[in-house]
Design a protein around this nucleic acid. Sequence first.
DNA 1: TTAGGGTTAG
Length: 881
Amino acid sequence: MLCKAANRVINRNEPTFLEETCSRILSFCNSNSLKQGISVHSPVIKLGLHHHLYLNNNLLSLYAKCFGVNKARHFFDEMPHKDVVSWTGILSAYVKNGNHDTALRVFDSMLISGESPNEFTLSSVLRSCSSMGEFDYGTCIQGYVIKEGFDQNPVIISGLIDFYSKSGLVTEASNLFITKGNHDTVTWTMMISSCVLAQRWVQALQLYVDMVKAGVAPNEFTFVKLLGACSVHGLNYGKLVHAHILLKGVKLNVVLKTALVNMYSRFRNMEDAIKVSNSTPEYDIMLWTALISGFAQNSMFRKAASAFRAMGVSGIIPNNYMFSSILNISSLMLSLALGQQVHSRVVVTGLEGDVSVGNALINMYLKCSDNVEDALRVFRGISLPNVISWTSLIAGFAEHGLQLDIFHLFMEMREAGVEPNSFTVSSIIRSFGAAKLLPQTLMLHGHVVKTSLYEDIAVQNALVDFYAESGMLNDAWQIVDMMNRRDAITYTTLASRMNQMGHHELALHIITDMKNDDIKIDEFSTASFLSASADLGTIMTGKQLHCHSVKSGLCKWFSVLNGLVNLYGKCGCIHDAQRAFGEIGMPDNFSWNGLISGLTSNGYIPSALSTFDDMKLSGVKPDAITFLSILSACSIGKLTDLGLEHFQSMRVIYNIEPQLDHYVHLVDILGQGGRLEEAMEVIQTMPFTANTSIYKTLLRACKAHRNIPLAEHTAKQGLELDPSDPAFYILLTNLYQDAGRHDLAERTLTVMKEKQLRKNTSHSRTEIRDKVHVFVAGERSHPRTNEIYEQIEFFEAEFKKHGYLFQGIGHSYYHSEKLAVVFGLLNTPSKATIYVIKNSSICRDCHDFMKFVTQLIDREIIVREGNRLHSFRKGECSCRG
DNA sequence: TTAGGGTTAG
């Protein structure tokens, strides 16, 4: 329609009318439709109207927008007449292009030419000042503004707010805003933008409320900034802003759509992100990039790939941003093939030298390829590697275990004049920590303390992690106390390191620290806390975490769901474990391992084995951990041949090299099956040095099969490794008693006592009614319960000495019809507790048993019978109601 | 002719 209008005008052939109207049409096109502007510009050029100043100014703007700043500059230089609008037009084109140096030179030329700047010129110049760090120049401009009486002008105020906030002086920007009145939409938006930049999220949203109250209409620019402020306020704020956009009738242009897509993908709501992008047909490369990286952030790699194809079909050529995104997806998918494919397209497009694409390539090769040379080749191809290039290389080298090269890279980087930032330093600290390079890290810490990097939370978190990992918890806490801001990473780091050290109670205490610091418990910290609860057996805390996860929507995370499977599996609530597993859409190997291990440790051997088959059928490859559970299941189920078959399959079918723990299980399987000589042969021929655990396993088997000579030999070998381990004496004693050799049993116990060896009071724990109970009995099957099992052996010996028939104590009796008791020592010194788990009432046997146990451990024991508690002390029982 | 969106390193 515009073309038709232009042609109608052209046909009238009235020069003045023609010039003004064409100028207006171009102006309209500049603001509304660049495409139509392009189609109008050729007839205008043909008419030879370009001596007309206004028309040329409009054309200049059109060229800058459509053909780039260089074409625009050429046109500008050819213009026969120039006014302030022409100068400002080319100046702002340079500013928008990020070419601030040239912009300031154009400003100088303009002043020399005698042309006076207007508010728009000054506003653009201010932008260049803040971008180039020319603070003094900017304040000179402000002086000029005051002198010329521009200081009430909203365009100038907007420019100054922008200048101050980008110079890091948001309070000055805010004062400027408050002292001047009569703000227009741009000024309000600028102030909101300043707050977002300074991360004053609440103030940004408050400004929007004030703006609406003041009767100033927000536009698409305002909403783009507001969406940025939603990043910390959560999805609901984002939705509220979206609702306001619709309510105010603001047009969803492609920029606003991009901001909305970003907001929704940040909150993992890709459904709405897609809905927004499809709500209008307008798409550009930035919207595609936002959408595709949104898919990547949410691990929707197939969708990302099909979006990339759809973009290609629509005729949009990928640029450096897009290639970086796609390469990032290849890294996340660990797909070297995809990465290489993209690399070849990068070469074809001529973007190989682009530093951001190069960085993404370095990262991709370091993540996907075993050969660091691939990444190095790309690195050498970048003419000016930036801090990201160096950091990617350093972090990747760390992943490849090349810690010693990292130091050289770090020095080389500094020689090249590239300053390390918080990413670089934190990567190095983490890699040094992993490689246990204590002196090097202490040196780096000493260096960092003197720089501003020490204020950075990522660097601080890396140091916290380093000290915690090195077991220096006090040093770690010292840094935590010194930090002026802590985040979820700080605490998750601490919790997981404490879990690794076995300090699970300390790990759980971090929940309180996070609450005190007002930090949200996220999916990562929840996983750590669930793991602590599982290992402590604190089912109530675990259930509270479960409730919290449901309420706060964390239950869609693998880490949380897998943590729940593990928790319930370890706490004996196998049905809850199965329910949690059922909620995982696509279980990964952690999910399967958690379920299989839960089933195994609770004695559901056939279910564990069939679950293993399901795992394989689902296409998830079993790993070393899976086989630990499966081998354990076979030994508990006395499935010797099947166990051997599975052990063989590890190497032959799954290419998994069995580790020492697997050999321990193999010895157990053979031992349980009575094939003691073969078990001994395994210990002698396996590619690992034997540990005490494997000898104890064999000794236990010898005891079960009453093979005294082999047992004595095994105990001897075990005691050579650790002469202070009482387990060998206790196991031997029990074997001698079983075999009726009470003389030998007595003698063994005497030797043990002479050596002043005492049974370790090793514990397992569980939580009943808000209290953690320390158990000294547990099931045999779990790898961690070896010590607990030894404890049982001790009690077994004691029980037998007093004529009790020992039936076993622990979790493994949950589902049996036998007397099911778990007995534990409360973690206060004066009390112990026994719980009747399965039986609904306490039978006489149980009473007697309790009385005996109290004599043995000389503590008060409480037994729960339904809701009634019985207290046993010194062999007496009293009901506690 | 002033303000807005996308990538890559922990």
